[in-house]
């Protein structure tokens, strides 16, 4: 964990409204764990004031070059343009300065007793799943990615997962790629084939709630990666909390997303479906 004053190596559009950025990041190939994130300071000015949180898609190293450039470690982010900060990010060019705080948070926990894994992603939710797939594949486990989005433009980086040896199912709501419909329908079906699988999900909240309900009734372990508004990313402001399992209006219980998450065991969180309590018996904690 440190604050790196560093530079952008690459930045370009990979699909309509989605960009990929590589940032020079010494130390990240060893330090970054699947599911962790960084706080990116886009420029050293007070507007926009706050850093932006982004999941780590990949940390790797570029080999030394005969021109004399030494080996360079970098971290890759994939981002969707949604507002001021992400729009500003699209204008960054190689060599531009940024500040990177990280790697931060608690990532995915890998349970050595589980050898079958279902990774469920919705749109930009693909990001934290790549390093997870890398680690699981390295163990020789069976890994399947279930990827959903509104249309084909929201399905990113699939071939990179396939190259790791991941089996991929795609579902789009408009049917422009893969099956037509929601990725949660694919999950229900795949859980029949792999009833002992561990499930890992990242995507919009309605998708995560549906995934939680499905995993709960199938009695499988689920870990989810959450997004929350963040100011600091290091547990100092308590702006990023989410309701925990014991939460109620009368006795609130909040968990800190940046510090205790962003990856949580589903059973540690409060879910809209009342079924949460029923599935504790079937699930162990993260």
């Amino acid at each position: 964990m440190k604050n790196l004053k560093t530079v952008v190596l690459q930045n370009g559009e990979i699909a309509d409204g989605y960009f990929r950025m590589a940032i020079l990041a010494p130390g990240y190939t060893r330090a970054a764990q699947p599911g962790q994130f960084v706080m990116l300071r886009i420029q050293e000015q007070i507007q926009p004031l706050l850093r932006r949180p982004f999941g780590i898609y990949r940390a790797a190293a570029m080999p030394a070059q005969c021109s004399g450039l030494p080996e360079r470690e970098f971290v890759e982010l994939i981002y969707k343009v949604v507002g001021k900060g992400t729009t500003l990010m699209t204008t960054l060019k190689p060599g531009d300065s940024v500040e990177l705080l990280g790697p931060l948070g608690e990532g995915f926990t890998i349970d050595s007793n589980i050898n079958n894994h279902l990774l469920v992603g919705g749109g930009i939710g693909i990001v934290p799943l790549y390093m997870l797939a890398q680690q699981l594949c390295k163990r020789g486990d069976k890994v399947r990615l279930l990827m959903g989005g509104r249309s084909r433009d929201d399905i990113l980086c699939i071939s990179e997962f396939e190259r790791l040896g991941v089996d991929v199912n795609i579902a789009t709501e408009d049917g422009s790629l893969g099956e037509t419909g929601l990725v949660t329908a694919v999950l229900e079906r795949e859980l029949l084939n792999f009833p002992q699988a561990g499930v890992y999900a990242c995507g919009p909240m309605p998708m995560l709630s549906a995934v939680q309900a499905i995993c709960c009734s199938a009695h499988v372990l689920l870990q989810v990666s959450l997004e929350a508004l963040m100011a600091c990313g290091i547990g100092a402001c308590l702006g990023c909390v989410v309701p925990g399992r014991e939460h109620s209006d009368d006795t609130p219980q909040y968990l800190c997303t940046c510090r205790q998450g962003p990856v949580f065991a589903a059973e540690d969180l409060a879910w809209p479906s009342r079924s949460n309590n029923d599935c504790h018996s079937g699930q162990g904690g993260k």
């Binding site: 007070i46 507007q47 926009p48 004031l49 706050l50 929350a228 508004l229 963040m230 100011a231 402001c237 308590l238 702006g239 990023c240 909390v241 989410v242 006795t251 609130p252 219980q253 909040y254």
Partner: peptide
């Protein structure tokens, strides 16, 4: 003290608003 419900923070021009609720 458990603090306030979320959202608790909002960025604004050259500043931020917080309603952490003294958690």
């Amino acid at each position: 003290k458990a603090g306030n419900p979320t959202p608790r923070i909002a960025e604004c021009s050259c500043g931020m608003l917080n309603a952490i609720g003294l958690q």
